[in-house]
Structures are given as structure tokens and as C-alpha cells.
């Protein structure tokens, strides 16, 4: 009769699918049974909020929404909270996109927020959506010369010369702030390199968590290249808290924390098992 493997041996070769199941449980259970956990606002997100908050009423903001459906879970909650913030403060917004899949997502956000129904804003006067333009950094550079020439029509095909808001905006010099929500390239990095460094326009950004570490140096730079930065769903949750509109990001934080704790436990467990098996092997 073959000898039954020891507990240590069985744990060492545990079927990885049990780990997947545990991870799924750590995500699903907190979503089904929400646990209120404290949420602390990081300085980067607080600075982002403060920078927007400091803008005078009626100031014009250029919002570049550059993400696609794959970045939606991380960036849409921020986009929603930011849109609430911008229109609550009566700022005027010019929206552009350098990602082809972004304009429909922007329209969904505008509808969800109720820009016209809740905040009573008028298209063309309080905000415009210029849609997508191909050309990446070239479009960024071109907007520095003339936004109206770069985007001759808006998303619906209306001439920008027929939009009252666009009479006041034609380059980065005419906007009080550049806000970029990006899931990659072109995005925050390119805007900092091409636009912020040349036109010194005050800029804040939101990105996926993967890109977060790459952009932190722009926030830490002296002088600051980014006045504030929100990274991933965590940053979005913090912004929702600051804006006072708890949404999808805040409700996902319990699941995020539970799954992170589980992963930390897996890493510790894996290392302990490795240590024990090596000690046993060496004995």
C-alpha cells in the first residue's frame, strides 16, 4: 500500500484551482455582503480634488478622456465623480478623446451624471464634446496652436464655430486646467511631455493602477508636472468620497481589500512552505 503523503507535501502541491476559487470568494462575498471599511484619502488624490476646487466658477477645463472598455471598471467611477465635481462647481468643459473607443463611454458618463437634467447645463454653452481625433501626440501639439482647427466639428458633426463655448477656447492658453483620464498611451505621460512641459498648463490626471507608479514622479517633480493624480479604483474611491458621491469604486473597496489580504496570505503561505520544504530537503 503506497504511503500517504504528508500534510506538508500535500500543501506544497495544492491544486492552484483552489486558490482561484478562494480568490473568487474574496471578491464575490464582500460584494454580496458589503462591509463598511474606513477609506483614507491619499495626498495625491486630495491635491487633485483641491486643484479642481480652487478653479474659479465659470473657468474652462479641457478634459481628455482616453480609455476604452477594458479600462472602464477602474476609470469610469473616477470619470463620473469628476463630472459631478466639475458641473457642481459650474466649470465649463471641453471634452476631447485620443482613443477611438472613448467618446461613447464619455456619453454614457454624461447621461449617468445627468449633466443637462440634474445640473441644467446647456450643450455648446457649458460643455462641448469634440469627440475623437487620430494622431496621438500630433493632435496634442496641434491643439496648442488651435483647438478649433484640430477639431473643426464636434462629435455630432456641428461646426465648432457654431458653438458659443468654442468662441472662447482656441488653445491651451485659454483653459484653466487640463484633466486627462487615461488607460495607457496616449495619455498622462504624453500630455505631460508634449503639452504640460511646453505650455505649462496646470494639469491633473487619472490612470489605471498599472500606470500609477510610472506617473508618480510627475506628481513629485519640482516644479510639479501633475498637480494631483488618481490611480486605479482606489483613487476613484477616494475621489468619490471627497466629492461626496459614493459610487461603484467605494462599493468595490471591500472586495479589493479582501482579495489583497488573501493574496498577501497566499504569498506568506507560499514562502513558508518553500522554507519548510527546503529545510526538510536539506535535513
Amino acid at each position: 500500500m503506497p504511503e500517504k503523503p504528508s500534510l506538508l507535501k500535500r500543501l506544497e502541491f495544492i491544486d492552484r484551482r483552489w486558490l482561484f476559487l478562494a480568490l473568487a470568494g474574496s471578491i464575490v462575498l464582500p460584494l454580496l455582503f458589503p462591509i463598511p471599511l474606513p477609506l483614507y484619502v491619499s495626498p495625491m488624490v486630495q491635491d487633485l480634488y483641491d486643484a479642481v476646487e480652487a478653479l474659479p466658477e465659470g473657468a474652462i477645463v479641457l478634459l481628455s478622456a482616453d480609455y476604452d472598455p477594458s479600462g472602464k471598471p477602474e476609470l469610469e467611477p473616477f470619470h463620473v465623480a469628476l463630472t459631478h465635481h466639475l458641473f457642481r462647481k459650474n466649470l465649463r468643459v471641453v471634452i476631447v478623446s485620443l482613443w477611438p473607443a472613448a467618446p461613447p463611454l464619455t456619453e454614457i458618463v454624461m447621461d449617468r451624471v445627468g449633466v443637462e437634467t440634474t445640473y441644467g447645463k446647456v450643450y455648446g454653452v457649458d460643455y462641448v464634446n469634440l469627440g475623437f481625433k487620430e494622431g496621438r501626440q500630433i493632435v496634442m501639439k496641434s491643439m496648442g496652436s488651435s483647438i478649433r482647427n484640430t477639431f473643426p466639428t464636434d462629435r455630432q458633426g456641428t461646426l465648432v464655430t457654431d458653438l458659443p463655448l468654442m468662441e472662447e477656447v482656441d488653445s491651451y492658453d485659454d483653459v484653466a486646467m487640463l484633466i486627462n483620464i487615461s488607460a495607457g498611451s496616449p495619455g498622462v505621460k504624453e500630455y505631460v511631455q508634449v503639452v504640460q512641459s511646453r505650455w505649462a498648463v496646470p494639469m491633473v490626471g487619472a490612470c489605471t493602477a498599472v500606470s500609477g507608479p510610472d506617473y508618480v514622479p510627475y506628481y513629485k517633480a519640482v516644479p510639479q508636472q501633475l498637480l494631483g493624480l488618481s490611480a486605479g479604483m482606489k483613487g476613484a474611491a477616494e475621489y468619490e468620497k471627497l466629492v461626496g458621491r459614493p459610487g461603484e469604486a467605494m462599493s468595490g473597496m471591500a472586495a479589493q481589500s479582501a482579495s489583497h489580504l488573501l493574496l498577501i496570505a497566499f504569498i506568506v503561505f507560499g514562502n513558508v512552505m518553500l522554507y519548510l520544504s527546503r529545510r526538510k530537503g536539506g535535513a
Binding site: P73, V210, G232, E248, A255, H260
Partner: peptide, 21 residues
């Protein structure tokens, strides 16, 4: 970077799970 990447992937899983629910 790895920590942020994990956070990002878990966020995607949360987003899709929420849709499924």
C-alpha cells in the same frame, strides 16, 4: 509596480463580477 498591477487586475475582476451580479 507588482502591487499596483495586482490592484488593477482585481479591479477588473470586481467590475466584471459586479456586472454578472
Amino acid at each position: 509596480s507588482f502591487g499596483y498591477t495586482v490592484m488593477s487586475r482585481i479591479s477588473l475582476a470586481i467590475g466584471r463580477t459586479r456586472d454578472l451580479m
